[in-house]
Amino acid sequence: MNGWILAATAVLGAGVGATVWGVATGPLRRRVVAQNLSTALACPALLLLAQGYDRPAYVDLALVLALLGPVGTLVFARLLAGELAGDPPRARALTRSAAGLGAGVVLALCVAVGPSRALLKLLVVGVLLVGGNLLASRALSGGMAGARRG
């Protein structure tokens, strides 16, 4: 067991474990935020696992998750807009810290990988992860209010 897998275990146990608890209990606004954070935290864990197992092909998983996770959150934001309009979810600090964690993991992996084609792929994953996460959380906290009437 090397340091990368240890870090992935920590992210999975603390981060994803907390989001599982958050999505299983509490009001609806907390649940949608927890669902968004679960994809934002599982993606860095998958990247760390790919580096830990020394299998660059596993980065594809993180790429797919970084692409589809925000899509899933946008589905919830659009179809639950009526329920969420009453008390919109606000979790700016949590979303920013999850995005910061993703960016930090991508930077650490970039340093470990060194300049190559894999570095480019990692950067694409990082941009998709942080950008998609911020976009989805903005849509959750009221950006879809106009779509509700349409």
Binding site: V20, S38, A42, F76
Partner: peptide, 18 residues
Amino acid sequence: RQSLVLAVLGVVLAVLFT
């Protein structure tokens, strides 16, 4: 709410398979 938990379950299952 069940669909929200199911979405998280899908992600966690993917991690388990990895």
